[in-house]
């Protein structure tokens, strides 16, 4: 990555904040950022204002960008109020300032050929999939979407999925809309029926692990965007690591903020996330 394609830090003005179901969509004016964004990139937002005691930035997938317009480039994120940081963001309105660093991370890898693709989103995890769907369709790929959540309130973008994709399936755990159950209950059928070559996924870790398994069972590639706690988001602190197998077959503790958040699903050691596997590079010595 060249310096000019790297992240920018900006004091971005809030253009709007809208509520959709359980989520908020925050639109920030961030000229220069939009042009650099690819599907799967994320943004890190400072929370609490200049005197905030909340030191760490909050990471959010980039939902969509507009390269120019009346306000210059804009950037949208979708978020759920989880704790004090996101609660603060949920009180931002037009003209407020939010300090943003973006784009960060490695985006989704796009297939070279015109192949069928399945995009799987859990909860707000669907946010980065719509720009991805646009890119894939531009390349002549067929796009199928599977979106799931616990309830209809927590489902994001079901309508947009119908517009963005050639086919879409929705699941909710309470059955309030779509198929009752989880995305993984329907995924195998969708992947089989579509003959997908690539499965893209963003959502909770357990969902990603399951998606990677389904893709592998069908001989498809998977590209999974993970969500690990991050202190810096820019690659300097080593907080956000997970065990990933490299080209050489070695497992390394890899930074999800710069080498991810998108990983090949078959390379992540899903059942070992949260641990340092004994065969990981540098694990033998234990110690502090």
């Amino acid at each position: 990555m060249t310096a000019s394609a790297g992240p920018l830090q900006q004091r971005a003005e809030v253009l709007s904040r809208k509520q959709i179901g359980a989520y908020h969509i925050l639109t920030l004016v961030a000229p220069g950022v939009a042009e650099r964004c690819r599907p799967g990139h994320f943004a890190a937002l400072a929370v609490g204002g200049p005197e905030s005691g909340m030191l760490l930035r909050r990471a959010f997938s980039i939902y969509r960008v507009r390269e120019s317009g009346t306000y210059g480039g804009t950037l949208d994120v979708v978020f759920d109020v989880h704790g004090p940081g996101t609660a603060w963001l949920a009180t931002r309105g037009p003209h407020d300032i939010v300090d943003v660093v973006a784009p960060l991370g490695r985006p989704f890898a796009l297939p070279a050929d015109q192949v069928p693709c399945v995009l799987v989103g859990g909860g707000y995890g669907s946010a980065p999939l719509f720009t991805l769907a646009d890119r894939l369709r531009e390349r002549g790929c067929t796009v199928h979407m599977v979106l799931g959540a616990s309830t209809e309130q927590r489902l994001f973008g079901a309508l947009e999925a119908r517009r963005s994709a050639h086919s879409s399936v929705v699941t909710t755990e309470d059955g309030s809309v779509g198929v009752r159950g989880r995305v993984t209950d329907v995924l195998s059928e969708v992947v089989g029926r579509s003959g997908a070559a690539v499965v893209y996924a963003c959502g909770p870790m357990a969902m990603l692990a399951a998606v990677a398994g389904v893709a592998e069972a069908h001989g498809a590639w998977s590209q999974c965007a993970v969500e690990e706690a991050m202190a810096c988001g820019i690659g300097v602190c080593m907080t956000c690591v997970l065990p990933v197998v490299g080209d050489d077959g070695r497992t390394r503790m890899v930074r999800s903020c710069v080498e991810g958040p998108v990983f090949r699903g078959d390379r992540v050691r899903w059942s070992d996330v949260g641990t340092v596997p004994a065969d990981a590079l540098g694990a033998a010595r234990g110690g502090p």
């Binding site: 760490l56 690990e228 706690a229 202190a231 602190c237 080593m238 907080t239 956000c240 690591v241 997970l242 390394r252 503790m253 996330v273 949260g274 641990t275 340092v276 990981a280 590079l281 540098g282 694990a283 010595r285 110690g287 502090p288």
Partner: peptide, 11 residues
Amino acid sequence: DPRAGRPTPRM
């Protein structure tokens, strides 16, 4: 030597 560090969460 290379060192893998501690398990997550790390912060």
